[in-house]
């Protein structure tokens, strides 16, 4: 039985696809057979971030409509074993997704995968509902910014009421807060909400804090999930987050302003 994890946020452009690519790659690197599904039908992007856009033949909607089978449609990652991508359709509409169809695909994937990562579209419409409906766990991607935090709170409300687990009255979905695009310097200056502020408001366990990082754009230019850039701060922060997802305890890093500048100046002074 696979664990289904939705990567969701409400607000657009906060880093869901970046996170989906990083977390799925990280889980696969740890040896878990992982598939990442792009639920952003009509606006597919995960394929670009994963660097497999030229290998897309069939997509998620083809599988739902039974126009292709899973074996034909899953793209096997070339860098990481155990990692597969199910791209979104570029030509159709989000409304084409339906609970029965999505449920059938998730059930079939569940038989052979350990983790199913669902990259949700923005908003609170059909696509976002479909992405969260079958989830066992949810990673709520939030930026330290008022509208993103408010939307995350709304999404938490929906996770608790409009999902399969909520409807069947079973164990509630396990919620994780992932704060991304965090800038410690601006937090220090009082210009940006701090981790503690956001934790106070949303009141769910913190999975990780991903710093604002130039490396993210560079990785997306190349089609490399950021977690594979092991030298980058954001890549390391995602690596920590994946370990925490798997139950390991890790210190939170990149929350303080780096003091490197001071020391290098000091060294210059001495020489």
């Amino acid at each position: 039985m696979a664990t289904v994890i939705v990567i969701t946020s409400g607000k657009g452009g906060v880093g869901k696809t970046t996170t989906s690519a990083a977390i799925s790659t990280g889980l696969a690197l740890c040896g878990y057979k992982t598939v990442v599904i792009d639920f952003d039908v009509g606006l597919r992007n995960l394929d670009l971030i994963m660097g497999c856009e030229r290998r897309v033949v069939y997509d998620f909607v083809n599988v739902i409509k039974q126009e292709s089978n899973l074996r034909q449609s899953l793209i096997k990652d070339k860098r990481v074993d155990n990692l597969f991508i199910l791209p979104a359709s570029q030509t159709r509409d989000k409304d084409i997704l339906d609970i029965e169809g999505v449920g059938r695909v998730i059930d079939e994937l569940s038989e052979s995968f350990d983790y199913i990562i669902c990259d949700s579209p923005a908003g609170i419409e059909r696509g976002a509902f479909m992405a969260m409906y079958f989830a066992d766990e949810a990673v709520v991607v939030t930026n330290p910014e008022v509208s993103s935090v408010r939307d995350s709170d709304r999404i938490l409300g929906l996770l608790a009421s409009k999902t399969r687990r909520a409807e069947q009255g079973g164990k509630p979905i396990k919620e994780h807060l992932l704060l991304t695009r965090y800038d410690p310097l601006r937090v220090d200056k009082g210009e940006m909400l701090s981790v503690e502020d956001v934790k106070d408001i949303l009141a769910i366990p913190l999975l990780g804090v991903i710093p604002e990082s130039k490396a993210v754009l560079q990785a997306s230019n190349a089609g490399t999930p950021i977690i594979l850039e092991g030298d980058s701060d954001a890549g390391q922060a995602y690596d920590d987050a994946v370990s925490r997802l798997l139950g390991e305890e890790r210190m939170h890093r990149f929350l303080e302003v780096e003091k490197k500048g001071f020391f290098s100046k000091f060294r210059l002074f001495r020489s």
Partner: peptide, 18 residues
């Protein structure tokens, strides 16, 4: 600070929406 203003506003609106 502008961050503390943001936090206060969020606490109010989120409580109301909940």
């Amino acid at each position: 600070t502008s961050a503390s203003v943001a936090k206060e506003r969020l606490q109010i609106i989120v409580a109301r929406e909940r």
